[in-house]
Design a protein around this nucleic acid. Structure first.
Length: 311
DNA sequence: AATGAAACCTGACAGC
DNA sequence: TGCTGTCAGGTTTCAT
């Protein structure tokens, strides 16, 4: 569901609410699908850690975790030696609210690095909620993290395309659209025969651009989504570069786009959907020239464009 | 190597 | 009311 501006909004909301809090325990649902790392490793990495910060990397939410009372990461401590999975049991019964029990040896000092990261990808329908324990547990809740402040952090994801993982230091595959400079940006598309729309969605090139902002940036740049990436001129690429950054920044300023059911960490909707010029406007007049907006499918994704404004 | 289609899931909505 | 078909903001895997 969420793309870069939505994830940025959610990460900022989470940062303001849970930074400094301490993770007491972790419950993981019975379905293994949302887990990219082993359940035992996630539990062992999260429990008893302090949340030093929350940030966005591409479309990922990254929780920076430090050992409680250890504000600074110990850079040398990056090697992980666990033999812990054997004793960890997953109890999926939501009603009993059973918690994973981690053997005490795992919490001993030195059992894991002092710095770690909890990575959350929301997929299409994932949400992260911060709430009181008495709040009813929604259907499709796959993880509940109990905080020392008495609140809970809950991961809810009906379609289960979201993923949870842990890592010593997560690195996105692609480059950050908001940080990249013009030269590396143009270099990403050199020699690529794939449609520019597909290239923009390729997370190994740029991380964070999704279907809405790909369509919106291409409209602003006046480039048709089916154009071969390599066919874009220097001027096309410059306009795409400028407009992609612009549309992402504007969307972040408005709290992202709420098309279906996206809400941020505080349950607030974004407002950028009101600024969409092509996305979701098939058959409606172009805001610039009144030509009807077309929708085609490119690499399996809906793509919206103005046949007159985009060449 | 690179490209596209299919698969992974559930829910909402339109049309009959 | 309820059935069927379509669509969805993402990523990975498989075939070509």
């Amino acid at each position: 569901m969420p793309e870069l501006p939505e994830v940025e909004t959610i990460a900022r909301g989470l940062a303001s609410r849970v930074t400094g809090d301490i993770i007491e325990s972790v419950w993981l649902g019975e379905k293994p699908e949302p887990l990219k790392s082993a359940a035992s490793e996630i539990v062992a990495t999260l429990e008893k850690r302090r949340i030093a910060g929350v940030r966005r990397v591409g479309k990922h939410i990254v929780f920076d975790l430090v050992r409680n009372g250890t504000p600074d990461a110990m850079a040398s401590e990056t090697k992980r030696k666990d033999k812990r999975s054997a004793n960890v049991r997953i109890d999926g019964s939501r009603s009993s609210r059973a918690r994973l029990k981690v053997p005490s040896a795992l919490s001993r000092k030195g059992a894991s690095p002092s710095q770690a990261e909890w990575i959350v990808h929301l997929g299409m329908t994932g949400r992260m909620l911060v709430c009181r324990p008495e709040v009813e547990i929604e259907k499709h809740t796959h993880a509940i993290v109990t905080l020392a402040s008495g609140r809970e952090l809950r991961f809810v994801d009906p379609r289960r395309f979201g993923r949870l993982s842990v890592s010593p230091a997560f690195i996105a595959a692609g480059l950050e659209p908001l940080d990249i400079e013009l030269q590396p940006f143009t270099g990403l598309f050199r020699g690529r025969k794939t449609p520019i729309k597909s290239a923009l969605l390729n997370q190994k090139l740029l991380s964070g651009v999704g279907n809405i902002y790909a369509d919106e940036s291409l409209f602003r740049a006046g480039v048709r989504p089916r154009r071969r990436a390599a066919s874009l001129t220097r001027e096309d690429l410059k306009r795409l570069y400028v407009n992609l950054k612009e549309v992402l920044k504007e969307a972040i300023a408005l709290g992202g786009s709420s098309v279906a059911d996206y809400v941020d960490a505080d349950g607030e909707e974004g407002f950028f959907q009101l600024q969409h010029r092509v996305y979701g406007r098939e058959g409606e007049p172009c805001l610039t020239c009144k030509t009807l907006i077309k929708r085609v499918v490119i690499a399996g994704r809906s793509s919206h464009y103005c046949p007159k404004c985009q060449k």
